[in-house]
């Protein structure tokens, strides 16, 4: 994936993350504790992966010599998968 494409994907995931986070904040009063913990777990996981992807982008192209493309792609896929789960089960309706 070239840098421009990767940055576009990063921005897209960041936007979806913020939408999910907004739902989580609104869910705080309405959902039970276990549901909120599952939601926060998703958000924390996406946030940590996103931070790492941003570090990779900020230090590109040198970072591409230190990290394999596959690792970044897997991280992106994990974020997308989790945000889909969040959207399916927890997004504010």
């Amino acid at each position: 994936m070239d840098l421009n494409t990767l940055y576009g994907v990063y921005l897209g995931i960041s936007r979806l993350y913020l939408i999910a986070n907004s739902s989580y904040l609104k869910n705080l009063q309405a959902h039970d504790k276990n549901s909120l913990l599952r939601q926060k777990d998703i958000l924390d996981t996406v946030s940590i992966n996103l931070n790492a992807i941003k570090t990779y982008i900020d230090s590109f192209p040198e970072s591409s010599e230190l990290i394999e493309d596959g690792e970044v792609n897997e991280s992106i896929n994990e974020c997308v998968k989790l945000l889909k789960i969040f959207k399916t089960y927890y997004n504010e309706r």
């Binding site: 777990d41 940590i48 931070n51 790492a52 570090t55 230190l66 990290i67 690792e71 897997e74």
Partner: peptide, 14 residues
């Protein structure tokens, strides 16, 4: 340390 944290974080999973 930044590279180590980046590597670990790219592999952070539930």
């Amino acid at each position: 340390v930044s590279v180590e944290v980046m590597k670990n974080s790219l592999n952070y999973r539930q």
